[in-house]
């Protein structure tokens, strides 16, 4: 556990109070005539976590909880509305930190969900994989670059000869391998994976997950893994954060979180997983649905679905507190009403 304490001291990536609101107001003229206010989706509403070097940190949650937005904020596809993102201690979040962002950007790469949309259909695979090499100027000379591309394709389980083909000639799993090869071409140390296996069949998902673990061991990569599938998250991650309506409700070491979930929402999610072992465990289907993030419930956003709700939950949003290394944002846990 020595390593862990060292990681905690100097995280590779640290996010503090990250906020991103999207303007979803009606057009100006409509607002003027219909007397509407501007409205915002609070996609990410104050999130803090750290990722240590070599870890896999997963964010789980249902659709619309803002987990993909967090991924895109970290790689700079979106500008944060507020809050800080520090990479190796360097602030790269705010607009003013554009120069630092540019310096740090090459260290991170992203893998996307849709293997059909994430590769330019008009480029050959070799060109797609070589793009980061060109942009970063890692290698000069056609021959060197092609040799490197061949090496990368081999690394992800394809053949160098595949480089001359076009994306549409490959299956979903193979395309995801190409995506991974492209991400690795930039020689990153930090990979953000946004639902990399959600669009794949289970047997192919297993191939990709194994490949990603394998690469992590060999190249010492750090992952931020976004997924809605708790079983996948359990399998790949060292730490897990559970998101609900733009907030992180609980984050902890994977084993701790799955063995002893504290937040009622985490418990609910775990309960909802289909029982594949057919152990006959009786599941309690969870009532209710995720509210709209445009108009989230007051106080704790989970209160309308929470079995432990109290008057206070409806008014006051709980702040995350640490219990034995587990970060939980819940009044009931704080008051000791649930262990």
């Amino acid at each position: 556990m020595n390593d862990a304490s060292k990681n905690a001291a100097a995280p590779l990536l640290s996010v503090d109070g990250l906020v991103r609101h999207f303007d979803v107001s009606a057009p100006f003229l409509n607002r003027l005539f219909e007397r509407l206010d501007r409205s915002y989706v609070k996609a990410v509403d104050g999130i803090s976590f750290d990722i240590g070097r070599g870890e896999t940190f997963s964010l789980v949650g249902e659709s619309g909880c803002g987990k993909s937005t967090v991924a895109r904020l970290i790689v700079g596809l979106y500008q944060p509305t507020a809050g800080s993102i520090q990479y190796e201690g360097v602030e790269i979040g705010p607009r003013e930190a554009a120069a630092a962002r540019k310096r740090m950007q090459p260290h991170m790469q992203m893998i996307f969900q849709d293997p059909y949309a994430s590769l330019n259909p008009r480029w050959r695979v070799a060109e797609i994989v070589a793009e980061p090499i060109h942009v970063r100027g890692l290698l000069q000379g056609k021959r060197e670059i092609l040799a490197r591309v061949g090496e990368l394709l081999t690394q992800v389980g394809l053949s160098p000869a595949d480089g001359e083909r076009y994306p549409h000639e490959f299956s979903g799993g193979q395309r995801q391998r190409i995506s991974i090869a492209r991400a690795l071409a930039g020689e990153p140390e930090f990979l953000v994976c946004d639902e990399p296996t959600s669009a794949l069949d289970v047997s192919v998902q297993a191939q990709i997950l194994n490949l990603m673990k394998d690469l992590q061991d060999r190249l010492g990569l750090t992952y931020l893994f976004i997924s809605h599938d708790l079983a996948v998250v359990y399998h790949v991650s060292t730490k897990v954060g559970v998101m609900y309506l733009g907030r992180l409700v609980e984050w902890a070491e994977t084993n701790t979180l799955f063995e002893n979930p504290r937040h009622p929402y985490t418990r609910m999610l775990l309960d909802a997983i289909p029982d594949l072992e057919m152990s006959g465990r009786q599941r309690i289907p969870v009532a209710g649905e995720v509210p709209s993030p445009i108009n989230p419930p007051s106080g704790c956003a989970f209160h309308p679905r929470c079995p432990h709700v109290e008057a206070r939950c409806r008014i006051e949003a709980p702040l995350p507190r640490i219990y034995d290394g587990v970060h939980v944002a819940c009044h009931a846990v704080a008051d000791g009403r649930i262990s």
Partner: peptide
Amino acid sequence: HGLMGSIPLIGHHVKKLTQIDGA
């Protein structure tokens, strides 16, 4: 058999999922 092994399960720590090669 391979299909079942390739599904990650909560509570079962495996280093590697069973995988069926190819497609």
